[in-house]
Design a binder for these strands. Structure first.
Lengths: 196, 196
DNA sequence: GGTAGAATAGACCAACCTGTCTGTTTATTT
DNA sequence: AAATAAACAGACAGGTTGGTCTATTCTACC
């Protein structure tokens, strides 16, 4: 009935994985929630792990799209970077926030060679890339280092927010970002910048 | 043979949980590794979840002890704070580093009322408290906010390090901490500091 | 040396898990 | 209206899990 069973399965699985974790959410729970037969799942995805990968990729794209969209109306790229953290705060403040799915994925799939772990890792890279693009547009010094730092702060805000359940970490992250940006306008971040 | 079976069980379980996760590590794996009978485990801990809690508490104490110990030889409390991040970098650089166990715990036990989740949360509080004590001793402004920020940055470094597997995130975290401390010497971090 | 408490091995259980298979029903297309 | 493909319900298999129980052995202590 909905545009595609496949997409419907992904979004139901996403909701369950977010709120209950990957391992603890059984296939049957997902099928029941989605109102879909077991064979539909296995015909479309092949295995539970591959469903997880599909969910991670879908969520990554959705999340990066939202973050980008939330700052397009801002002109100054400098302010755009700060806007990302505002969007983060808004996310953390919403009722259904229950932590960053990609951090959960690396925790539940410790083998870095596993497909879910790789999907989670590539999300982090894409997020860093998003910051990098904005840093370049803002003509900031040392964009490579700076964007790594911003991504790291965002990760810190995500996992801290999961625990204390307020938007305070994101607000703190924004303050820190502001300080970093201020400094990156004039002088380099460190005299001996480490490679990569 | 070792001081106590209980402690031996905890440290074996710790190693396995760290490298393979909580849910994926079965009871039997732990027993085999520890060379201990199943009933010994259940007599001492009652359940797998309670073993996990014991491991988390033990690890928390061990980790905070190590961090504190790594900076006791430094006189200046300002430098002590930075020393914490050096210790973090050293940890991340070691071969057996495979991420922060407490972040893994909150990911694998999404229910914040569950005992493992509570144990993980209280570790974060203790870490923040450690920073707070150092901030006070360094006579820095806005110690409450600052220590929250430092703990958040440390968390960000932890989870980023898990993914890219270098000590670079911790080094970046140290740089950021340095900037924050520098500013906290003179003026408050924000005119309108948010409560708590 | 006898006794009490802990630790042992290992069988056992019920529940749950992912994944497969089958036969039927529903939609879509021509 | 016929044919093709997808989705369906549900039984089934094989394996694993956390946890219990029992009967035996080890280890101290008095």
């Amino acid at each position: 009935m909905p545009p595609s069973k496949k997409q419907h399965l992904i979004s139901c699985a996403r909701r369950l994985f977010e709120s209950e974790g990957f391992h603890t959410t059984g296939i049957d729970r997902i099928l029941e929630e989605a109102g879909v037969a077991k064979m539909t799942l296995y015909n479309n995805f092949g295995s539970k792990d591959m469903l997880i990968v599909a969910v991670l990729n879908d969520t990554s794209q959705d999340m990066l799209n939202r973050l980008s969209a939330s700052v397009t109306h801002i002109n100054d790229p400098y302010e755009q970077i700060l806007g990302i953290f505002d969007a983060l705060a808004q996310w953390h403040d919403s009722d259904d926030f229950c932590g960053c799915m990609f951090q959960a994925a690396v925790a539940e799939f410790p083998d870095p060679e596993s497909e879910p772990a790789k999907a989670a890792q590539s999300h982090l890279l894409r997020l860093t890339e998003l910051f990098y693009g904005l840093c370049i547009r803002a003509e900031l010094d040392d964009a490579r280092t700076l964007s790594s730092m911003l991504a790291m702060i965002a990760s810190g805000a995500n996992c801290t927010a999961r625990q204390i359940r307020t938007d305070l970490p994101a607000k703190h992250a924004r303050q820190i970002a502001e300080i970093l940006l201020e400094r990156a306008c004039s002088r380099p971040l460190s005299s001996s910048t480490i490679a990569n």
